[in-house]
Amino acid sequence: MSFIEAKNLVHEYFRRDENDNVVDILTAVDNVDMNVEAGQFISILGHNGSGKSTLAKHLNVLLTPSSGTLFVDGKDASDEKNTLDIRQTAGMVFQNPDNQIIASVVEEDVAFGPENIGVPTDEIWQRVEKSLKAVGMWDYREHSPNKLSGGQKQRVAIAGVMAMEPKCIVLDEPTAMLDPDGRKEVLDAVHELNKKKGVTIILITHYMEEVVGSDYVFVMDRGHVVMQGTPREIFSDVETLKEHRLDVPQITELAYELKKSGVDLPDGILTRQELLEALRYLDEN
């Protein structure tokens, strides 16, 4: 069994009037099948309203499936008994850095998760040290979160999740409110956790550039998974991406336009380096 296994997953939001009668049903996630292996770096791409955040909230049991099944690490998410276990297995980082930091000192915030699951005091200190060092925020342990930059706050939030020693971290648009420097900081930290600690990462985003380094990509539109594959496979198909209101990374777009106007380039160029090499190869032949 895969680490995360979703089958025919459906989630419906109900809009009700004052008398609690359902006036409107919005299917945010519609018949999604998804398999994720442990240790992978997965990206879920999608435009606003594509259902990607709704899907992410299922992985942490903040929402439960309206129909279909979801198993996280072999546990059924529809079974209430598993809620706390799954939340411990799959931690979640949210979009707004201010609204997910609970304590007024960095180290106490990181300790919040372990405190909730009843970790003994000595071990809390060890875990806090380990996770703050893993995201490079150990020097700020006694600071107030209010004085940190957005990127730093987001790294504290990631440390807070890490301290619960999850097997998987779900990040719901963690960089949407950050400046370019902060975005790089956070992504670097996440990639490092994936490589060094083997944590499964599920990154929800609408920035194409952030997807490039991942192992596998799911593209969502209107509640459906419309494309899936490695970043190279996904970005080879520029036409389909544009149909789903998504752009491709600048370099890929440039290579695509060059190819369209007759330059003989391979499909799915992702980095500046690759484009350079392809052009050089052309030049030599």
């Binding site: 903040l62 609204n99 997910q100 300790a111 909730n116 809390i124 619960m164």
Partner: peptide, 20 residues
């Protein structure tokens, strides 16, 4: 937002909580 973030980090009331 905060309530969701707290729930996501297994907050479940004061029972069984330890302290840093």
């Amino acid at each position: 937002d905060l309530a969701q973030a707290m729930e996501a980090r297994c907050y479940n009331g004061g029972e069984g909580r330890t302290k840093m």
